[in-house]
Design a binder for these strands. Sequence first.
DNA 1: ATGAAAGCGCTAACAT
DNA 2: ATGTTAGCGCTTTCAT
Lengths: 339, 339
Amino acid sequence: MPATIRDVAKASGVHISTVSRTFSAPHLVNVETRTRVQACAEQLGYRPNRAARALITGRTFNIGLIVADIANPFFPPLVKAAESQARRHDHHIFVADTNEDAVVEEDLVRALAKQVDGVLLCSPRMSNSLIEQLSREVPLVIVNRQVGGLPAVVMDVAYGARRAVEHLAGLGHRRLALVSGPRGSWTSREIRRAATAAARTARCELSIVGPNLPTEEGGLSVAEQIAHGPATAVLAYNDLMAIGLMEGLHAAGVRTPEDISVVGIDDITLSRLTRPKLTTVAMPTATAGRAAVDMLLAYGDDRRTTAHVNLQTELVVRDSTAAPNPRRPAEPGDAAGTV
Amino acid sequence: MPATIRDVAKASGVHISTVSRTFSAPHLVNVETRTRVQACAEQLGYRPNRAARALITGRTFNIGLIVADIANPFFPPLVKAAESQARRHDHHIFVADTNEDAVVEEDLVRALAKQVDGVLLCSPRMSNSLIEQLSREVPLVIVNRQVGGLPAVVMDVAYGARRAVEHLAGLGHRRLALVSGPRGSWTSREIRRAATAAARTARCELSIVGPNLPTEEGGLSVAEQIAHGPATAVLAYNDLMAIGLMEGLHAAGVRTPEDISVVGIDDITLSRLTRPKLTTVAMPTATAGRAAVDMLLAYGDDRRTTAHVNLQTELVVRDSTAAPNPRRPAEPGDAAGTV
DNA sequence: ATGAAAGCGCTAACAT
DNA sequence: ATGTTAGCGCTTTCAT
């Protein structure tokens, strides 16, 4: 039986409303009384029931965090940063995993809506219109996607993708492949758009392979196709796919970077630990998590001013990229498997 | 303004208690009425407010999940499985990260206590007595540690550690090192105990190096010491440390497994992707996450019967272990850096 | 500065 | 089968 506000009131000989004020508006209560009430509360182990409080104030001090796949190493740093930032502001975080499923996503937002002050929607797969509708039911901050004028934290992956293409072109590659991500991914579209434009500028061919699952398996599954295709360098939707791809290429007897260069995106911890170490585009996921929480908490105050944050990305050159191998020239007749 | 039970009552022309019953005890209400109420509710987008419901029923349909470090790749599969299992039973999950800090842990349990039906405490760093005390304030299921008779889900890491030592001894190693984990870790003590016993049985020396941070850096930081020590094989507290260690050894010009064999624990995804691929002890983290949720939800029903689950672990032999290198014999005078 | 009273959204006896 | 009533733990007018 945890202590309630009534127990504290009884113990300190005041009315419950005085106890209430002691916690939610201390300046309104006499110092002596306050001290006594606090002492009693402490001694009884009293903690205000937030759910009860929320019922009347409308503020839950909870935040919902919805991610596509928490087992994808891209997300944990974001979740960690968001949780830590939320707690700094005395908020708790509901975490839910949609398994990349748009329907689950919608249901989750609605299910959480009543017990949170807002929801952080990370890399959502829903349609824009649905997201806009949901944002009318509960404050939403979108991470990694731009939806109308909704508050959003995006990482400038387009810039990173462009830098990656420029890097490859600079090394002398002329035939590139883009291993794209899952259907419905805003990030994947951004990458594609930016890579296409950059390739055109650099006078490179760019073939698109996909869509694919954003996992190691997704990368592995296109390895054969890449190995037999004309591309001498590949940009993958994320590091996991890049790593799976390298595995698959290795198995097929194709060396990285000697035969084919590979670039990932995300800069997950893992990317520094593969051999060769992966060249990739660093995404500031922790910063994004913090920023998203801040934006949500500022929702009431000054909604407009911080409605949009665009975070820098950066190309990190490691060992999975090199100049094309002159002894592995294009085989004119061999376009098997390319799209 | 989300619809309340009163709006639905008004719209369907019944009393609010009938609406309430329609959702919490449908069999008690006339089929026609029920259908009508449901239709109205649907149309108004009504969803029962769980917090309000919890206030009176005492059941929140929420679960707290407290982990030491969600960015440690050991945890995400556990969190994912727990979340998914919880949702299958219509529960939501609060996730909190303690950063391996016992004080934060305690505070978090207390802070969450009121808004959850129970807390999953993963690899806690608190003292046994404190944990037992907390378990009187809120239902607790401990993962990865045994505390008195409290409900627990543990993975049999002792078995795995023994198998690892046997594996190394079987390859011909006689001087082993154990790179231990953080102070206060039950798992680390288990590993130490089991490895020590197994080493004795196999007539191997076993030196203990640590405690260390359970991270890649932790492993890296002991690489020099290991490189110059007499051990020809190392068991690390977890894969992350094993990988960091291999990095460090590599940098020091020591090859794995030719010069020194390395075994990790956890079998994180990453361990299949390093080069050499890591020999490790597989931990059934997803199963543990599911089991912990099930145990918590069964808390009321049959507390005793399922109060303890012990999950199997398994040695996975990959490429980071091999027979000792005969050309790198013990250097009698060179024990520098060993403990 | 403190108390009294109403009520947040909902459920659970108890009536009818 | 449905309505009435009380109240979960708390905050917030409004009095005093």
